[in-house]
Design a protein around this nucleic acid. Sequence first.
DNA 1: GGCTAATTAATTGCGTACAATGTACTAGAA
DNA 2: TTCTAGTACATTGTACGCAATTAATTAGCC
Lengths: 158, 158
Amino acid sequence: MATPTKNILLDEQLCFALYTASKRFNRFYADALAPFKLTYPQYITLLALWENSPMTVRELGSHVNLDSGTLTPLLKRMQTQGWVERKRDENDERQVNISLSQKAIDAKPEIFAHVNSCMDLLGMDEKTYNETRNIVNFASERIKAADPKQVKFSDDQL
Amino acid sequence: MATPTKNILLDEQLCFALYTASKRFNRFYADALAPFKLTYPQYITLLALWENSPMTVRELGSHVNLDSGTLTPLLKRMQTQGWVERKRDENDERQVNISLSQKAIDAKPEIFAHVNSCMDLLGMDEKTYNETRNIVNFASERIKAADPKQVKFSDDQL
DNA sequence: GGCTAATTAATTGCGTACAATGTACTAGAA
DNA sequence: TTCTAGTACATTGTACGCAATTAATTAGCC
């Protein structure tokens, strides 16, 4: 006889926990970043650029795990709002270099200070925060490595 | 003097870890659910309905943490594909009752079995899986409780 | 009953996500 | 040099996610 189908409850799912937590953080940052009119993906784009600017769209995408289909319109909006500049590379015209605007450079301390103030609301000490992140990253690596396409559909018959 | 602005590195952020893990799980499930032509939000909608059907759009939304702006088009697509039925309540015509189709009831064991097979790929034992979920949920509750809107923008001057 | 406030979905508009495709460009082989 | 891959970005199409608005209905109050 087939293995009895284990029931799957929504609230017991790790994926649902991550999905929900990610959405909540998204809303949290939407509020925290509202004074600067930045969205969360725009904020992480700035974080990446503050660490290293300029970068090509490709380099940027590898840091924030987004492809050009997402980044191109996002960066155009950020350009319109004066956060970044987009310049096609003179040597290799396939590439577009993304650099921080003066506004973004100037706003960095202010944004950091405000975001840090908001983070204090979480009431998580540094140890808990770091442990949580490490555990999430551990699971994340496992998910990344797994490839469901290799699971034969007939496996349900086991 | 002002508190020195602590630097914020992308890879050290809990939010980024959750954001990335959530996207990876999304892709994981996109592959795992491909044989059934279901997306991840559609799958959690089915999970909720398998636990309790029918439900109104509002009840369903409170289980999966989505509002009608997301659910209405999602449910219409699921109706088109034969997973659910949508019927306006006869007593209170403001409400729409969502119920499982026979197809969804019949497919449950098959979907559970296949998803469980895919989950085995993660190579996480039950203890690790549950601990990870509990830690994520703990952080999630903290995020939910925090309200950045109450942080005065002048806090950066501290 | 008739008026008003609250409730519930649906709609609209904007911003991601990402697969698939298109286009411009570069570089290496014949 | 011409052909051919390969690379990098842009575009298109589909599907969320959610705030804000609208529309329909119900319920409370006089």
